[in-house]
Design a protein around this nucleic acid. Structure first.
Lengths: 251, 251
DNA sequence: TCGGCGGCATGACATAAGTTAAGAAACAAA
DNA sequence: TTTGTTTCTTAACTTATGTCATGCCGCCGA
């Protein structure tokens, strides 16, 4: 295949013109491979690039003074990482690979070219930023006002949803490579309590925790215990981009 | 004065050309007044507009099934609200006025005009989105990995920082019109515990809780108990926008 | 001026989640 | 294989925070 990473992702939102594709393709640099647990950047590093995830999983985190840490987000193939720090000179969170992975760098400075040359791409970038915020907002709700059990279930359902939506083929969707310790740091819990909670979910036949990963057995059941409402993941892709596309092509 | 709401805000980021100002001004509708506790929109409402806050305070929230709620963000004069839902047809959170307020609507559809006509404005919008995400990220850390006391202190310091940064004159910065119940919903705590925690902060001379509001007495002290690191609020305004401005004017 | 109500204050008690510790699996490397 | 490392599991115990209940204060509207 060899198709550009970011083009594939963007085509999920809207068909692109050849010109758009050429533009994106010219800006994307050669893919970079990272191995499991390799750090891509650390807090304080320069923000000169962002990346699209082509293969594998990544996570963003923040280390706290007291030695504890907060995992801020998990990224799956097709996601864009680092766009968040667009406005900043330095990274405010670290990024490391959860599994062996392949990522495609994209120089931040070239965003100017994109914005000035393609109204459609500009719009798509904006949609992605909006979607990212929506996910963060839901994570806030999760941390603030749900029980440990609901937190876990909700998080797992979200991840599985995001996997389904990606344009990238990742094989079996339901084997999630997150350790209980990482989940704990993502959900603001202790690893021990995550384990306890998993035992409950396991008894109810909802999940099957394995070494270094989780198998989701009953998505509907998980949604029920999470009180999962998917609307925060359902962008208005077509309505919003139709006009942008029309005007863009007319130019 | 009567200067446009959004222009004033944008000029915080960069000087604008007359053309940019004209563009923004033509898109902004007449300001709308809302009284304390008035709802601007509810979950599920249409996302056809976003707003700039000219006067007063607002908050975004999400009501949970079990009757509890999560306050997602507080907005102060100069902030833009509703941009988050750019990619969505329906609002995923409610917005209501915390005090009497004045907000300026801006039709979402006209974003196309902005993006196509001004590279600089497009960039500024992107910066704002990035900054918003940064704030959400920090709030995640706050909810996930800090004690009640640190949560409170951190939140208060953030608000005071954001107040200082705004271009809008709001009189005394340090009288914050948040009730303890609202703070509780913002921080994922119970109102009772927020009260207990306030007693501690009060004993230490850091704050002075009054009816329906809080006075910050010792910002440095609050920063210390919060472990506050301001970098997540410090955008690279000038570096990033300089080139956009240069190219924009050259056109 | 008064009454009512939303917000504050505080105590007693309940509980979800954290901590510590120790052993068992699973994996990775030699 | 053997060894070492990470992750999971479980138990006993501690603690931060939630819940319930009650009274008070200070606004705002009649």
């Amino acid at each position: 295949m060899g198709a550009s990473c970011i083009i594939r992702h963007f085509e999920f939102y809207s068909p692109l013109t050849d010109q758009d594709k050429k533009l994106l393709d010219s800006l994307e640099k050669a893919p970079r491979c990272v191995v499991k647990n390799e750090s891509v950047w650390q807090e304080g590093a320069s923000t000169d690039h962002f990346y699209t995830v082509r293969k594998g999983w990544m996570y963003a985190y923040r280390n706290m003074e007291d030695g504890t840490r907060q995992v801020l987000d998990i990224f799956v193939p097709g996601d864009i990482v680092g766009l968040r720090e667009f406005a900043f000179r330095k990274r405010i969170s670290g990024l490391t690979a959860l599994t062996d992975a392949e990522i495609c760098p994209f120089p931040k400075k070239r965003m100017l070219d994109v914005f000035s040359q393609s109204l459609l791409l500009c719009h798509i970038f904006f949609m992605i930023a909006s979607r990212d915020q929506s996910i963060l907002l839901e994570r806030l709700v999760n941390l603030g006002r749900r029980s440990a059990k609901a937190k876990l279930a909700h998080f797992l359902v979200e991840i599985s949803r995001r996997l389904e939506k990606t344009n990238v083929d990742i094989g079996n969707h339901y084997r999630i490579p997150l350790s209980q310790g990482l989940l704990a740091d993502a959900l603001g819990l202790s690893a021990v309590h995550v384990n306890r909670t998993f035992q409950e979910l396991k008894e109810e036949g909802l999940v099957n925790p394995r070494h270094g990963g989780i198998e989701l057995l009953d998505l509907e059941g998980l949604k029920a215990v999470a009180g999962f409402d998917p609307s925060y993941l359902e962008e208005d892709v077509h309505g919003l981009l139709a006009e942008a596309r029309a005007r863009h092509i007319a130019t």
